[in-house]
Design a protein around this nucleic acid. Structure first.
Lengths: 191, 191
DNA sequence: CGCCGAGTTGAACTGAATCAAGAAACGTGG
DNA sequence: CCACGTTTCTTGATTCAGTTCAACTCGGCG
């Protein structure tokens, strides 16, 4: 399991010892209870958080309803890339679904390291590409798959998520109503 | 309009003269007739192409049917990022919809420049983020918008596309049937 | 002239949303 | 540890959006 940002980054490319030391020196661990809001709509996202333990979700409001955009579980990094990148107010809320242990990195500090350590910027590029590809897969599934297929895929790729998150969040995540997801789940379980 | 890769990259960050020279020295212009295939499913994507003139589409087959994933018009860069990044066989075809003038850059050469010029790698990071954000917007529109709204948005953001591309391609791009798009278009035009 | 691909239109059908009501699970305070 | 209120989940009935299939129109082209 990924316990530090250095380790997280090094999954993509080795970093110099200096870079790693520098990253660790600006990391701070924090423990937060479930329901904590780590980013509020209207704020600018200024930190990224590596999840050591627990689960979070990012959501927005559409027509008064909460729509979950992303989940963040162990080994993943919580952030609103759009707000971080543009330095504009976030459209999203990020809330912890479970009690969490996180490692916080102030983005302003991380960004400085990008110019200091070329290899770190390189890792950041690869990370962005991976994010892009993931969104891409999701888009393809919207283009061609039914709700049932989208749910099956989620089950396959992320089997534990379903037990940790309530139905409504999963439903909006795959773009269907909670009622419909309940029926789909029934249908899939019945054999 | 963006006429060179240097100019394309410099929209994000200034590059050193050396880097620009180097980029230009590995760029080659090419003129190709409509219907040319610049990437075939099963090949590894080895080049990126800046579109100076014309239009291209990326598509794949789902259940025997063509599904268009992306369009590339003037000032944009044609590539299958997934295949380039993973160096695996592409799942996509990329075909020119119009006669095109392109600038080709062999990715293997470009990649070497990334390590040579830090600022170029930095630009590549920003580019990847922008791609990600774009896909993100698209995903949100699938989560919460009806087919009609998705089409209206496309019209608003890309008004000329509709006149340059046939209905079926646009329909699959926004994830609906061609028949349905025809009806939506009727409905929207009738006032 | 006849063909072909692209677009339109109609009819029947299906997947999914909505509304509403009830059941189950969950959390909190006493 | 129980009782209560709240949230989450299920289920049924109805409506609506979108698909599919098929027939037809239209414009361009060999």
């Amino acid at each position: 399991m990924t316990r530090t940002f250095s380790a997280y980054f090094e999954k993509y490319k080795p970093l110099s010892d200096k870079a790693k030391q520098n990253i660790e020196s600006i990391s701070t661990e924090l423990i937060l209870p479930k329901k904590s809001i780590v980013l509020r709509q209207g704020e600018v996202c200024r930190s990224v958080f590596l999840v050591l333990k627990g689960l979070a979700r990012m959501y927005y409001f559409d027509d008064g309803k909460e729509v979950t955009n992303l989940f963040f579980s162990e080994g993943e990094v919580i952030a609103d890339m759009e707000s971080i990148y543009s330095k504009k107010q976030s459209q999203y809320n990020i809330q912890l679904i479970e009690n969490c242990t996180l490692i916080e990195l102030k983005y302003s500090k991380l960004e400085k390291l990008y110019s200091l350590y070329h290899e770190l910027e390189s890792v950041a590029r690869l990370l962005a590409i991976e994010c892009y590809l993931e969104e891409n897969v999701r888009n393809r599934s919207y283009q061609t798959k039914s709700a049932k297929e989208r749910y099956s895929n989620l089950l396959k790729n992320n089997p534990d998520l379903i037990n940790r998150v309530n139905l409504g969040h999963v439903a909006s995540f795959i773009g269907i109503s909670q009622v419909q997801l309940s029926r789909i789940r029934l249908e899939l379980s019945s054999f």
